[in-house]
């Protein structure tokens, strides 16, 4: 416990309170850690060494692990250096954000659900043993996310899904694991951790560009509640990632004329008397209303 406290003190002090003489330089570190050093030139953090312009507290090993003099004099030991395996999650976050807070995509990291649940940098990134080509991920991105998100893994095992397991779509195409600005669709600041297309739209529109519009006749539910009103974005047992196996049930859940729902506040219009639902002809709504995401020439989305 005492050693743990010493680590916290080190983190709190380093690098602001450390003296320049406490820094020994990365060349000293490699004497005892040759396995780390051997491939460190491939590590993005090597830039701080290659630069030659950074101050000692921002250079190489000691930029993350703090001044190494005490560690060297003690001939090693976790109590004399900032050892990330011993740091609490908030301290790990503090240590990384000392440099990595400078990116807009991480501007919301401290209030993200991941941080709230103690999922911090070292939970997903492996600084010295990353097998991933970029971002020092501890594992293939999909496997990494599935580690905690078992329910999402189950959805991507379904017959209809975005091709994440196939490697052509990534979780970060739609999500920002470092925390995101509030979604501009739906309410209660949900869904969370979403990337936004262009500057403020649902990420679905990055690929499904034809659904973006604007249309003269917008299907209001798409704009007000988002694509997930009708679709399950991760995976579904139903074609087109629909939430129901048949289209007419998907539609009629809202189009029942009840209450003060809908954009006219007098109920979402129910099918009129010409729609005999006992006739199979009327059980495929999108056959006659194919432009269901929006239309420019017909307010019933027929063309």
């Amino acid at each position: 416990m005492r050693s743990l406290r010493a680590v916290f003190v080190l983190v709190a002090l380093a690098p602001a309170g450390a003296l320049a003489a406490d820094y020994v330089g990365s060349d000293v570190c490699k004497a005892c850690h040759p396995d780390v050093w051997a491939t460190f030139y491939r590590n993005p953090h090597y830039k701080s060494i290659a630069s030659g312009r950074e101050t000692p507290e921002n250079t190489g090993c000691e930029s993350c692990h703090g001044p190494g003099k005490a560690h060297v004099e003690a001939r090693g030991g976790k109590a004399t250096i900032v050892a990330f395996s011993e740091l609490s999650p908030p301290k790990t976050l503090d240590a990384c954000l000392r440099c990595h807070s400078q990116t807009l995509s991480r501007a919301n990291i401290r209030r993200s659900v991941h941080t709230q649940e103690d999922v911090v940098c070292s939970s997903c990134h492996s600084i010295h043993k990353s097998p991933a080509p970029k971002f020092l991920l501890a594992k293939n991105q999909t496997d990494l996310c599935y580690t905690c998100h078992g329910s999402v893994r189950a959805q991507f095992a379904m017959p209809f899904k975005h091709r994440v397991n196939e490697g052509v779509v990534k979780c970060t195409d739609c999500h920002n694991p470092h925390g995101a600005f509030a979604a501009t669709w739906r309410m209660a600041a949900r869904p969370r951790m979403m990337e936004q297309a262009q500057a403020n739209e649902e990420p679905c529109l990055n690929c499904h560009a034809d659904k973006r519009g604007p249309f003269v006749y917008e299907h209001a539910s798409v704009r007000i509640e988002g694509c997930e009103t009708c679709h399950s974005p991760h995976g579904s047992m139903n074609a087109r990632l629909l939430r129901r196996p048949t289209v007419f049930v998907t539609c009629l859940q809202c189009h029942n004329g009840a209450g003060n729902f809908g954009r006219r506040a007098d109920g979402v219009p129910a099918p009129d008397a010409t729609h005999n639902m006992a006739d199979p002809k009327y059980q495929n709504c999108t056959t006659c209303h194919p432009r269901i995401h929006g239309s420019n020439s017909d307010n019933y989305f027929r063309r």
Partner: peptide, 21 residues
């Protein structure tokens, strides 16, 4: 070195996606 091995094993102990063969 022992720490390195345990870290790599921890990393390996993640859920695998059922990727195509």
């Amino acid at each position: 070195m022992k720490t390195t091995i345990s870290i790599s094993l921890l990393v390996a102990a993640a859920a695998w996606a059922q990727r195509p063969v």
